[in-house]
């Protein structure tokens, strides 16, 4: 068996170990590679930074634990930015498993900046329906959310005084891992003409560049890298920035694996093989 065929037949658990080490070692021995803030994240930052004091920002954190690694750091950084700028934050989620993440995130951001619930921010909680909630809020927030997450009537919450639709909201921020982004673009941005900033997982971030061009989105924060850039811009050192060294190393490993796989394939073909492994690749038996 040639070296190429041996390489192509490697047990996949060796690849798993490489990925595991590539993740753990930079976390144990960080190098703190520099992070450059890209234009789209800078645009998102500036959109929030230029809001006047007292403006109301609706942040819809539509994600669950499976994507919290990318979106939770974003949420905390953005909320801390809003609090530092003395903006009022209205938090909500359209995902059933969202409250368990959004509630502690709001509390953590508020505690870090010395802010008080109901005075500086409110958590409306979860509501089912996606589009129906987004459009319904255009007419009456209180019809969709009679009370907040803690069962307090909205009328008795200072942050919500005078706010009963998008007319009382200055900016909408959506952090999401799903097609909720499409719906916020369709309704908040296009139908109700609200400024919209999107934080998305890396998987879907590339799909939203057309909306940046058409100004339906004013900023885009993509994945953990985007969250790290926002933390850098905020001069914070959170989970996203901590993970960037590991991100770099694992990307290099995966890129090398792809290149190596192709080199081995061509070498194997040259030596007369057809490139298929000599035996089935290793894995669970």
């Amino acid at each position: 068996m040639s070296w190429a065929q041996r390489l192509l037949s490697v047990d996949r658990r060796i690849i798993f170990v490489l990925i595991g080490l590539g993740t753990a070692i930079p976390l144990l021995m960080p190098v703190n590679l520099p992070i450059t803030v890209t234009p789209r994240v800078e645009a998102a930052y500036q959109t929030i930074d230029t809001l006047p004091e007292g403006s109301r920002v609706l942040i819809s954190m539509d994600y669950e634990p499976d994507t919290m690694a990318e979106l939770n750091p974003m949420a905390i950084a953005i909320m801390r930015h809003c609090f530092r700028k003395k903006l009022k934050v209205i938090g909500m989620t359209l995902y059933p498993a969202g409250p368990g993440l959004v509630e502690p995130a709001m509390k953590a951001a508020a505690a870090a900046e010395g802010k008080t619930r109901n005075v500086d921010y409110v958590f409306l909680g979860y509501k089912s329906g996606f589009q129906t909630v987004m459009i319904g809020m255009g007419e009456s927030i209180r019809q969709q959310y009679p009370v907040d997450f803690y069962k307090t009537p909205l009328d008795s919450i200072p942050v919500m005084r005078g706010v009963n639709s998008y007319a009382g909201i200055d900016l909408v921020v959506n952090l999401t891992a799903s097609s909720a982004a499409d719906y916020w673009i369709q309704f908040a941005a296009s139908r109700f003409k609200k400024k919209l900033v999107l934080g998305a997982t890396a998987v879907m971030a590339t799909d939203y560049y057309p909306y940046l061009s058409s100004r339906q989105l004013l900023g885009l924060i993509g994945g953990m890298k985007g969250a790290a850039e926002y933390e850098k811009r905020m001069d914070l050192f959170g989970d996203a920035r901590r993970g960037m060294d590991a991100q770099s190393l694992v990307h290099v490993i995966v890129s090398l694996l792809v290149i190596l796989g192709n080199v081995a394939l061509f070498a194997s073909r040259r030596s007369g093989g057809d490139g298929t492994p000599a035996r089935p690749l290793g894995g669970p038996r």
Partner: peptide, 21 residues
């Protein structure tokens, strides 16, 4: 929370293996 996030974290290993193969 840990179970949901770890289930999806497995994908990192599988995507690397799939990219190589």
């Amino acid at each position: 929370s840990p179970l949901a996030s770890t289930m999806f974290a497995l994908l990192a290993f599988f995507i690397a293996s799939a990219a190589f193969r």
